[in-house]
């Protein structure tokens, strides 16, 4: 039998380099689909159509239309990560707390894995088919009567006559929440499962109420994971393009939609301005991640120690 020999000088096993060969496809992928596009993006943001250095691509900073698109993107991402995050957290808690039957948690995990990746055109179509002007839930609602605020019956009840519009920011929030909450379920479930049953019992035994346990033990323990998951959700919504484009047809100006318009290749587009807009997104995500790291340092001192 052949024995592995260690390098006398370094004391390292030379065969460990062999295992790195398996990672080569990953390194190639990162190089070609992350590093190189990023370099193109960063350099393109500071070049004009002829390849000359310019800062003109950032003129959108003076354009209220572009600035508003950033605000809308941030706002929609924030709202959907908070709503989806909270909803996902409670769903995950309900299944991990041991009160729900095991089959329910299996179904939820499977559904979450599917729904978290169900975005883009199919998701937009699914929402149009259900909550669109002729969607089947809209049709069902039209078949019932509801009592209005003044007590008078509203027959038939058409949500579109009462301010609802799927093709608006509200619709976008609804659609985004659909893939945000399962992502939260998937990311927070391991953290919730990490809460030891003995901690609740020890806390209760020492005289605490359930609220005190959550305030002093469970939430502080979960906080680093909650922050991480929320950042993930924010990034997920901030970079989403296809769902918004397919659902609203580009009528709501998100940064990603504006970038899409610039790089689509029609005569009105300017890819370099698109790169500059994307550069702005990178800056915003970097600031968000920086804030997250700062908060993480504060809330997770006990993990690092």
């Amino acid at each position: 039998m052949k024995n592995k020999q260690l390098n006398r000088k370094s004391g390292k096993d030379p065969s460990r380099w062999k295992s790195l060969i398996g990672l080569l496809p990953f390194f190639f992928f990162i190089a070609f689909f992350l590093v190189m596009p990023s370099i193109t993006l960063f350099s393109g943001a500071f070049q004009d159509m002829d390849g000359q250095f310019t800062l003109a691509n950032f003129s959108f900073l003076q354009n209220t239309f572009a600035l508003k698109s950033y605000l809308t993107s941030i706002w929609v991402s924030l709202i959907t990560s908070v709503i989806g995050g909270a909803f996902g957290f409670f769903v995950a808690y309900a299944t991990t707390s041991g009160r729900a039957p095991r089959w329910m948690s299996t179904i939820l995990t499977t559904f979450s894995g599917l729904a978290a990746n169900f975005g883009g055109v199919p998701l937009a179509f699914a929402f149009i088919a259900t909550l669109g002007r002729t969607g089947f839930i809209t049709a069902l609602l039209k078949g019932i009567c509801l009592n209005g605020p003044d007590g008078a019956a509203i027959c038939p009840f058409n949500p579109y006559d009462h301010g609802f519009n799927l093709y608006s920011v509200v619709g976008l929030i609804l659609a985004y929440t659909y893939f945000q909450f399962p992502l939260m379920v998937l990311t927070i479930t391991p953290a919730l499962e990490g809460l030891k049953k003995e901690w609740v019992e020890a806390s209760t035994n020492l005289g605490s109420s359930s609220a005190q346990y959550w305030r002093y033990v469970a939430l502080p323990v979960l906080l680093p994971s909650l922050l991480g998951a929320t950042i993930l959700l924010f990034g997920n919504a901030f970079g989403a393009y296809a769902t918004a484009q397919a659902l609203t047809g580009g009528s709501i100006y998100l940064v990603t939609i504006m970038i899409g318009q610039q790089i689509r290749g029609d005569v009105l587009g300017n890819p370099n301005e698109g790169y500059a807009l994307a550069f702005g997104m990178v800056i915003i995500m970097s600031i968000t991640i920086f804030l997250y790291v700062m908060l993480q340092r504060k809330t997770a001192r006990w993990i690092k120690s």
Partner: peptide
């Protein structure tokens, strides 16, 4: 009560 797994609050 003292538990087998200590059950100290890690935070």
């Amino acid at each position: 009560m003292v538990f087998q797994s200590y059950a100290l609050f890690p935070n």
